[in-house]
Design a protein around this nucleic acid. Structure first.
Length: 563
DNA sequence: GACCTAGCATGCGACGGAAA
DNA sequence: TTTCCGTCGCATGCTAGGTC
């Protein structure tokens, strides 16, 4: 395969620091920093009009720092310091995403050749000397298309995991209410009333390596708990000279609690769904051993919940401001709401089932990442046959705007996309179909409520690939063609749905009540999992909507039938 | 343009000292 | 002697901005 030096194809322009605007005006423009190459979570604007401006066809690469070598493209805005803009000399000969994926495939090479004593800086010479496969523009687009699809699948898996987290949080809220104001009036007890004891661990000086076998012993590091999910590989091997202490070995169903960390992370709590043998508590990790009146999964979500965490964090003391501690005594005196054991058990069952799904998701995500790396290596080594890849039509000035109701192109979905459905039909939410609908006046939303109650499991949600207005995507409910389910006629459905109009999710939750809302969420999770629904960007807060329960996503229902 | 240092924030391990 | 609590300070990540 003929190759060409990367440096001959591009010119480089270094960015500069921009002062962010306090208030975004009509003349403000986005400026791009390293984090923006990975996500759009915090978009910043500036009125400083000097500097290098990136456009859609430019590549961007982080030049300095720990993330040097990170590549992005498709961004518009001024380029911040530590980022270099890469502009194509012949944009009609080279496809920007193809070169972007090529640079990503060369990440290790670039990192291996950085300069600088403390902070890595990319080497211009190394970048210029990278050898790019010299292939046709169509072949470039086909490779970029395949790799983009692989990235989308990875993103979809990550998003599903986040949504399952959100689902459990909102289920907790639905079942137990706000634990801070306790409007449901649950009995309030000191935590010590529910605990038989609080175990603490041991922190001998360990080896700076992770234990490798079940026969070896190790001490957990704080990182095993910090994320609120138990990470068994966060450990340090016990030296052979020290005898293990089986009484502080971590066991399945343990509830672990970090007594010490920064203000933000102190009191993080992790539930152990599974663990290898031979892991012991460190002296900064407590084990909360509870009695029969409380379920560990309930305590886990209670203590980690964003609202109740403030009460937990308030327990921390210590004059070292950066490193507060929570003592056993203070923790034992923490007052908690204590719902009925029956309700806690229902919640624990849901947690167990969702966590099982998440385990599948994580496994799938790992496989997808391996697949992506393999695809990338083969693509740039000329070992990938892309001749049969059908590309989506290029938008032209003459081509009509796609219809709102056009189905997404799924013809290129690889096999890995046919993984088990994450929330399969028939998924049994607690009492979801047993409770009678709440009585209320007939509003469009309550009409939708009744409709979903009656036909919810016979519906699916599709999205319109083109934003309707202001970036809000239309969602359309259609029958799922399941013979065993009642299927409403499309006419009836579209008539009813057309009255619903734009409905914020938070309002839906209030209007529909738990029953219909839970079912609607299930439908939406499926849509997200299948890539048929996307979250929108919230322009006011400059954040991507990351929760279905915070009212940031608008559900716009249109009467347009699916073709 | 390339390279480098300063400075700040965060995360967390090491370890000392008081209490049990 | 062991357990528990608390502080210190190092490693790391990141950005800003200076110097050659």
């Amino acid at each position: 395969m003929k190759k060409v030096a990367f440096g001959t194809l591009v010119k480089l322009l270094k960015g500069k620091k921009h002062n962010p605007s306090i208030q975004r005006s009509t003349t403000s423009k986005r400026f791009i920093q390293i984090d923006d190459l990975r996500n759009d979570k915090l978009v910043k604007f500036t009125d400083d009009k000097s500097g290098v401006e990136a456009h859609q066809n430019d590549l961007l690469i982080a030049w300095d720092g720990a993330n040097a070598g990170t590549v992005g493209w498709g961004l518009n805005g001024y380029v911040g310091s530590t980022i270099v803009l890469i502009r194509l000399k012949e944009p009609d000969q080279w496809h920007t995403p193809f070169l972007g994926f090529f640079l990503r495939s060369q990440f290790n090479t670039l990192r291996a050749n950085t300069t600088g004593a403390t902070i890595p800086h990319l080497s211009r010479i190394s970048l210029d000397n990278l050898q790019v496969p010299d292939i046709s523009l169509d072949a470039q687009r086909q490779i970029a298309h395949i790799l983009s699809r692989a990235e989308e699948l990875i993103a979809a898996r990550q998003q599903t995991l986040a949504l399952l987290d959100d689902f459990l949080k909102s289920t907790f809220f639905d079942m137990f209410g706000d634990p801070v104001n306790n409007k449901k009036g649950w009995k309030v007890e000191k935590l010590e009333k529910c605990l038989t004891r609080i175990d603490s661990g041991w922190s001998p000086v360990c080896l700076d390596e992770v234990k490798q076998s079940d026969e070896e012993w190790a001490i957990l590091k704080l990182g095993a708990v910090t994320s609120r999910y138990f990470k068994s590989n966060e450990n340090k091997k016990l030296p052979d000279s020290l005898r293990p202490r089986p009484n502080i070995e971590v066991r399945k169903n343990d509830l672990l609690f970090s007594r010490k960390n920064t203000r933000e992370l102190v009191g993080a709590c992790a539930y152990v769904f599974d663990t290898p043998p031979g892991l012991m508590l460190s002296d900064t990790i407590f084990r909360l051993v509870h009695d029969q009146n409380v379920r560990g999964q309930y305590l886990w979500y209670l203590l980690n919940g964003s609202k109740f965490r403030k009460s937990v964090q308030a327990l921390a003391s210590g004059s070292a401001g950066s490193m507060p501690n929570i003592s056993k005594e203070r923790l034992a005196n923490l007052k908690i709401p204590l719902p009925s054991l029956d309700l806690q058990s229902q919640f624990a069952e849901i947690v167990n089932r969702v966590e099982a799904l998440k385990a599948q998701q994580r496994e799938s995500l790992t496989e997808l990442k391996h697949l992506y790396q393999s695809l990338m290596q083969r693509a740039f080594a000329g070992q990938l046959d892309v001749s049969r890849v059908v590309l989506p039509a290029l938008p032209t000035a003459e081509s009509p705007k796609p219809k709102r109701t056009e189905r997404p192109n799924t013809s290129l979905k690889p096999d890995s996309d046919n993984l088990p459905a994450q929330l399969p039909l028939g998924w049994d939410f607690p009492n979801a179909w047993q409770q009678p609908p709440m009585q209320r006046e007939q509003s469009p939303a309550s009409t939708l409520d009744n409709l979903i109650l009656k036909h919810g499991q016979g519906l699916r949600i599709l999205y319109s690939p083109v934003p309707a207005t202001d970036g809000i995507r239309d969602l359309v409910l259609i029958p799922a063609h399941e013979p065993e389910r009642p299927v409403p006629t499309l006419d009836t459905l579209t008539t009813v749905l057309s009255q619903a109009g734009p409905v914020p999710f938070e309002m839906l939750r209030r209007e529909l009540g738990t029953v219909a809302y839970t079912n609607l969420k299930r439908l939406i999770f499926e849509g997200l999992e299948q890539g048929e629904i996307y979250q929108e960007f919230d322009d006011e807060t400059n954040t991507a909507a990351d929760s279905l329960t915070q009212g940031r996503i608008l559900l716009t229902v249109t009467p347009t039938p699916i073709t």
